[in-house]
């Protein structure tokens, strides 16, 4: 017999009451922490902060890894909680890990361009990491849009990078099933900018929700049972929700440039991209490249990511599928071991 409406309502209400009770208890302790791995600030510039994570008591490897995340989200997703922390897994393997935190742009940043991000911020961060680690080159790990910026940087400054890793990074923005491309096709970025001259982070969040509107807007909040099963599962959910709703604004100029050059004109893949009037050609990357892609990624499809193979010399290029979605690829307890194993084996 199908569940009656009353039975459903009673079950739902019972679970909702439990959720309220759990949140009431949770109110008496601090909200679950995110990005809690110990780190020190080694450089700051405007809103940007460059952190070095404190090494663990294990044998240290030589080359530092600098992690560059996307501009559309906060980077603490890579250190969401200890069990799921990509940062901690790398520290456990003895890598010296550095992270660029882009901060929260305001109206004074609206003219920050892609050139400023790539040849300015990233370049200066690389110099600081090199000095801090006393090394002549660094390993660069770019995630999602951070991977795009990292690729551009490496193509323009090949002597700075020993090895490059891209994780869930779009290359071909016009690949099939690329819903973001369809959504942004013909869009004038001018309509997205707010009175500060930037693109509201909240608007970006809504844009991502339109990729799977029913799942992300409704289904996610239907199943309360798994939230109330343990304090740990509720905490994980709260951390993820915090991150999902924590969208910094995008600087107006960089957002416009990215929308037009990448999403609309696909210039990186078409080999017609210029940054500060200099051609950005991925073929100029001379270091080994590991391209990690998520098999169930609806935001950056495997086809989009794997297009990188068309640009990098085969002897330098390696790709590795990771079973999971766009974020799950590096946060899921199932996917992370596979990811770390691939990284460690390749990085050395």
């Amino acid at each position: 017999m199908p569940t009656t409406s009353q039975q459903y309502n009673d079950t739902w209400q019972g679970e909702f009451i439990q959720l309220m009770e759990q949140l009431s208890h949770a109110e008496k302790r601090p909200p679950p922490e995110v990005g809690s791995s110990a780190k020190e600030l080694i450089y700051s510039e405007n809103k940007l902060q460059l952190f070095r994570y404190k090494p663990l008591d294990v044998k240290q490897r030589t080359t530092p890894i600098l992690i560059t995340y996307a501009l559309v989200n906060r980077p603490y997703i890579i250190d969401l909680e200890p069990k799921r922390s990509l940062v901690l897994r790398l520290l456990e393997q003895g890598y010296a890990v550095y992270l660029i935190d882009w901060g929260y742009p305001d109206s004074s940043d609206c003219f920050t361009s892609l050139n400023d991000y790539i040849n300015g911020y990233i370049h200066r961060c690389v110099q600081h990491v090199k000095r801090n680690a006393n090394k002549k080159k660094v390993d660069l790990l770019g995630i999602c849009q951070g991977g795009v910026l990292s690729l551009c940087y490496t193509a323009l400054h090949p002597s700075e990078i020993r090895k490059l890793i891209t994780l869930v990074t779009p290359i071909d923005f016009h690949s099939g099933d690329n819903l973001l491309n369809l959504l942004t096709n013909g869009m004038n970025s001018n309509i997205l900018t707010n009175n500060a001259g930037n693109v509201s982070g909240q608007l970006i969040g809504q844009l991502f929700n339109t990729l799977k509107p029913f799942q992300l807007s409704r289904e996610k909040y239907r199943k309360i049972k798994h939230l109330i099963s343990t304090e740990e599962s509720l905490d994980t959910f709260l951390r993820m929700e915090k991150w999902l709703n924590d969208h910094p604004d995008l600087t107006g100029l960089a957002a416009q440039e990215f929308l037009e050059a990448f999403y609309q004109q696909n210039r990186l893949h078409k080999k017609s991209l210029t940054i500060n009037d200099k051609a950005v050609r991925l073929e100029k990357i001379k270091c080994p490249v590991l391209n990690l892609y998520a098999t169930k990624d609806h935001i950056v499809t495997p086809d989009s990511t794997r297009a990188l193979a068309q640009h990098i010399k085969p002897s330098l290029y390696q790709e590795q599928p990771i079973n999971g979605g766009h974020i799950g690829a590096f946060t899921s307890l199932k996917s992370q071991p596979e990811l770390i194993k691939s990284l460690v084996k390749w990085l050395g």
Binding site: S5, Y8, N9, W12, F16, L19, M20, L23, A26, E27, P31, R218, K220, Y221, R222, I224, F237, L238, E241, K242, N245
Partner: peptide, 17 residues
């Protein structure tokens, strides 16, 4: 953050109901 979660869950609960 907790209030937002409760509101979201409540709203969707009513929807599915």
């Amino acid at each position: 953050q907790y209030k937002e979660l409760l509101k979201n869950v409540s709203e969707q609960g009513l929807f599915y109901q």
